[in-house]
Amino acid sequence: MIELQVRDVYKSFGGIQALNGVSFEIQGNQLIGLIGPNGAGKTTLTNVLDGVYRPTGGQVWFNGERIDGLPPYEIARRGLGRTFQVTRAFRRMTVLENMLVPAMALHPTARQRDFHKKAWEVLEFLTMDHLGREFARSLSGGQQKLLELGRLLMLDPDIIILDEPFAGVHPKLMETIYEYIDVVNKQGKAFIIISHDMESIFTLSQRLLVLNFGELIADGKPGAVKRDPAVIEAYLGEEEEEEEGIVLIEAGDMEDAEESDA
């Protein structure tokens, strides 16, 4: 059974306290949304979980093993995969080669051609099989996001963290991403999905985490979180309140999000 425990995690950059004692647990193949205003610490949390940053305090346990302090490639091989807020395809490699990198990293004795079949299947699932021989740099932004999702499947992780998977994606590709999340989740993988797209995140997730100024201010069912006074308060600073609770943040914010991570 998949198990992730985040225990009182702190992360500071000089004077900035990006994560301020965050604790939560994931059991099984939950589909979790992670929201919070710009600069709340969502990407920082992802980077701590996948080993890019060592937390300044606290611990992370994954499937019975402490993983904070391990390098990212070790954590990836243990089954925690992530995408990046700003896409990071291997641009001067073909789409197929992009797919083979994680497969080869995970299977030290395998040959590349052992994984061609699986790679093509995943690409087909993502409606990208006609692009397999193209360089990744020739793909559109949305297709590069799909490619990152495809690479993750080749890594075959237990937990998948998606940082802004819907930002700047054409509606047509968005459907593919929805289906991806649904199918892969039903195959038994847990998801943490970070998004400013409130509509998507509220319909998708079974459970919602809300970060604000590095602190977890809410953790529960989407319906309950929506009415949580602390959450409404957190979002009030940014935009005017709507009757229902959280204001849907407009598409314009997606570009801000992309820039802030560059």
Partner: peptide, 20 residues
């Protein structure tokens, strides 16, 4: 394959399990 992925993006390569 690994050194080219490293050339393209070290952080992404290590997130994909490559010991950069």
């Amino acid at each position: 394959l690994f050194v080219r992925s490293m050339r393209e993006d070290e952080e992404a390569a290590s997130a994909m399990g490559v010991n950069v």
